[in-house]
Design a protein around this nucleic acid. Structure first.
Lengths: 362, 362
DNA sequence: AATCAATTAGAGAACGTTCTCACATATGAG
DNA sequence: CTCATATGTGAGAACGTTCTCTAATTGATT
């Protein structure tokens, strides 16, 4: 009963009195086999506790039925949901999932990609940590490894991609605040360094309505752009003192930003936070400052986190379809793995505004 | 510059004018090689964009430097943190991570384990979905595959294990409530079916102080046991009507349980929830019933979720060291993989009570 | 009766590494 | 000088599968 140690296909073949080729055919389910031989082999395999060695199989077929994922941080609810989505379709198609964290560091990402490539994954899903240069990703493409990007694009890298329509979503959120009567609206965004002319320059160009290459912007910059556009559309000025750059992907960075924001002369009456982490930090900061929502400050967040529904008041937010994003990315990748050859596709998923109680009319 | 397609070690050897054996030695970093040959090989490898094929290497060495993980649900913050912990030490040791979800279903778990075993992982970390029977896990042990259990034990399966000291932690939480003057304390726990005599029988035995085989209890039953022990120690009766079985691992199950609990004649003045999911559901339920914390009901939770710190009031809770649990499990597994041969170890990690504002004195 | 296609089965190569062995060449001790 | 030991190299086996070939058998169709 207890399969002592690992039996190979040769062991099974010997036990069944057939050639390894025949045993391989019935066990691997390819080619022709007669019913009686099939039965013998199956019986022998059962008895020996045979388990196919996927390594050997993959070595010769060139397929591992494994996809590699480079996420920012599994622990972050955004990535956790996206991963779950990926996992759902991977599992449904018999694919395994090799997962790594980049912590938004390019060097860790390069390292991860190298690891996954060596393990011969059939394809990769990556949230690139640098949207400007990514030689390792270009290399992958050059070697024909299927690749799908999530959440961000890379300049000049023509591959499938799925992301939220950040600009539209942010614009919608801010216009919602404006419609409620708010005129001084703060924004807390991570806005990590971008190769361009800094926050001030960016704001100036955005406010002036200059064309901006928005595709390869980091999501937080895209959402800032949506913020500015909403102001433009509604004919409101943008006060740069209300645009706070947290400068890091951490809740504590956002938390630290909040006192700065509220100290501005003519402080904001409403706040827009550009992602889950910023939202959490902002909530921490508000709690620390003993400010009440929405009496002291209205707030609209980005990304619908679990607690937002039962928080008092409920938090009005822009919900990204995180699970669906993961699923879409995985599906696109599988299509590529199966050899489909369309031109690169970009799937921009719509976000949904969920009204709860954190925005009060002014 | 651009590595066209995949170069093998044979290609590199040919380009460098040496044997594949020599090329293998310098590229694989084993055996002796002279400095000049080393340089030639390295240069050739560089030029061809050589990337070692981990499959071929693993096939012959018998090691994949990959560990498999079967988690309940990556999306759940508990598993997400544990996974991050595992990922941290795996990555630090050059190991990859193959991750699957079981959704607490035994059949999915069996399927996952089979997949991972076929992919020849060097070891497995599992949160077993059934603590009674687990033939697939016993089989693994029989075949000598290193295995570490997280969060739960399996009857008769002597392997390394890391978990929270649930009984002690729950006891501490409930005694904290009792010390605050509460006498009628509700508990919302998932309490999925156990092969024993049901909730009533279990309670009767626990209240009577009968010995209970607690090692292989599901965590929620262990925490219920801690709840009962706290009552016993403090000389308080246990009212079975206040022990609510959600019957499922979902927030909505807990949410649905709340009205039932509050409808009991002589309703509770305080509530203990036995994990993050139950806590979230309970918060939803409270929000729905328009009950205020801690005026209408004091609450102490299990597992410290992000929102608990900035919720108003702050939520008093038992914090499990989730990250450290994952790290500990991964470290133990790596030791086994490296051949260490102690008797099976059980690491019970202490939980910490974090006082915030959700418990009011009665 | 001859031909063809479909089915069945085995021998042995192939996948890309590492491992074992045999054989050189140095180096140093006695 | 001789022996042992360390260093360096290549030929070819091995890992456990799938793939390619060849060949034999069957059954139906001309």
């Amino acid at each position: 009963m207890a399969p002592k140690s690992k039996a190979t296909i040769t062991d099974v073949a010997r036990a069944a009195g057939v050639s390894t080729a025949t045993a391989g055919r019935v066990l691997g389910g390819y080619g022709y086999t007669s019913d009686d031989k099939k039965e013998q082999v199956l019986k022998a395999a059962q008895k020996l506790g045979y388990r196919p060695n996927a390594l050997a199989r993959s070595l010769i077929t060139g397929k591992t039925r494994t996809i590699g994922v480079v996420a920012g941080d599994i622990q972050n609810p955004f990535y956790a949901s996206v991963l779950r989505g990926i996992s759902n379709v991977a599992e449904a198609n018999g694919f395994g999932l090799l997962i790594t964290n980049s912590d938004e560091s390019q060097s860790k990402e390069v390292h991860s990609v190298e690891l996954l490539a060596q393990k011969q994954v059939d394809g990769l899903i990556v949230t690139p940590s640098d949207t400007r240069k990514a030689r390792h990703l270009h290399n992958l493409r050059g070697m024909g490894v299927p690749l799908v990007l999530i959440d961000r694009a890379v300049a000049g890298l023509m591959v499938d991609r799925v992301a939220t329509d950040n600009i539209a979503a942010a614009e919608q959120a801010v216009r919602y605040l404006i419609a409620a009567g708010h005129r001084r609206i703060g924004i807390v965004a991570e806005l990590v360094d971008q190769e361009n002319d800094g926050l001030d320059g960016f704001l100036a160009r955005a406010v002036a309505g200059d064309p901006i290459e928005s595709e390869t912007l980091y999501p937080s910059w895209q959402r800032l752009l949506g913020y500015v556009r909403a102001h433009r559309i509604e004919g409101l000025p943008v006060d740069p003192r209300l645009t706070i750059r947290a400068g890091g992907y951490s809740a504590s960075a956002a938390q630290a930003a909040l006192p700065r924001l509220m100290k501005v002369p003519g402080p904001p009456t409403a706040l827009f936070t550009t992602d889950g982490t910023m939202s959490e930090g902002a909530m921490r900061g508000l709690s620390e400052l003993k400010l009440s929502i929405p009496q002291d400050l209205s707030i609209i967040c980005f990304d619908d986190l679990d607690w937002m529904s039962f928080h008092r008041p409920g938090i009005t937010t822009i919900a990204q379809p995180r699970l669906a994003m993961g699923e879409a990315a995985a599906r696109m990748l599988l299509e590529r793995i199966h050899g489909e050859d369309y031109p690169p596709r970009t799937v921009l998923m719509p976000a949904e505004l969920i009204e709860r109680g954190s925005v009060a009319p002014l």
